[in-house]
């Protein structure tokens, strides 16, 4: 069994010293894996990501229990730029590029820890290799990019930091299904090309599970399911409330799903 790159154990995060957002969440990412974390709004996905990437302090939140270990180091409640230097880079959900800088400047801004001039140039070239569309837009102000281009730029500037683990928050948000699919394929290419690991947080369950090696499902701040993506896709609960299908293949009414979910919560 390989040593995990990132392992989160029994994580508990409390906001404003009063509100518990997530509790008892454990997950791990092994080198070279793509791991998907699924869940609805408020399930605790973003909180988990923020805890891992060191962004809790800004929202007056703290990791109160459990630990986060990355490459054998405990990183909970560390400063975000230090975490980035360790090789753990987040692509946030919103505001993922600097809108008033050009594409080239967006790629120039990130700090590549302990990288020389040549290494840095190589990495920037690599970004244009993975996302050839960006090369044509070098001089464009990032605020004028389309949603898909913006996502590419965000992924690209995360890659400049030479991550070993990429955390991606809602890659599919606000993008056309075609664009999402091509981005997902690109992610697999990047993983294969650079040998890094990816932790993917998604609402769009089917598309995330398609490329993932392992999946977790969060609900109400707790882990409710985990396993092989193919098995998860077959799981009746996933089919019912993420894909909106019943076992017989027909769609359920909203009311029925809601009813179901309410009863489901008791077992979670």
């Amino acid at each position: 069994m390989t040593v995990p790159l990132l392992s989160v154990e029994k994580l508990e995060v409390v906001y404003h010293r009063a509100i518990t957002a997530v509790q008892g969440i454990s997950l791990s990412v092994k080198p070279g894996q793509i791991v998907a974390v699924l869940g609805n709004n408020g399930a605790g996905k973003t909180t988990t990501l923020r805890a891992v990437s060191g962004f809790l302090g800004l929202d007056d939140a703290r990791v109160t229990e459990g630990n986060i270990v990355f490459k054998g180091m405990r990183i909970e409640n560390r400063r975000p730029d230090k975490i980035t230097h360790l090789g753990l880079v987040l692509v946030p959900e919103r505001d993922k590029v600097f809108p008033n800088l050009t594409v080239a400047e967006n790629l120039a801004a990130p700090v590549a820890h302990r990288a020389g001039r040549a290494e840095r140039r190589r990495r920037e070239a690599l970004v244009y290799e993975f996302f050839p569309q960006l090369a044509a837009l070098k001089g464009r102000i990032a605020g004028l990019l389309s949603g898909g281009e913006r996502q590419m730029l965000a992924l690209g500037s995360a890659l400049v930091g030479s991550p070993e683990l990429l955390l991606i928050d809602e890659l599919s948000l606000g993008l056309a299904p075609v664009a999402v699919e091509s981005l997902m394929r690109r992610l697999v290419e990047i993983r294969d090309g650079l040998g890094l690991s990816i932790l993917l947080v998604e609402q769009n369950a089917s598309i995330a599970l398609e490329i993932a090696d392992y999946g977790y499902v969060l609900e109400n701040g707790r882990l409710v399911l985990d396993g092989d993506p193919k098995r998860l896709l077959q799981h009746q609960d996933i089919r019912e409330f993420y894909l909106g299908q019943t076992t017989s293949g027909e769609r359920k009414s909203y009311r029925a799903v809601k009813q179901y979910r309410r009863s489901r919560r008791w077992y979670g």
């Binding site: 962004f55 975000p80 505001d95 809108p99 800088l101 120039a108 801004a109 990130p110 700090v111 930091g161």
Partner: peptide
Amino acid sequence: SRWGVRMRAAGQNPLLAAQRGINL
């Protein structure tokens, strides 16, 4: 200059700048 660009970046979105490894 790289530091100049980082300065502008930090001014626009300090959170993202920190995520990109910039020491605010």
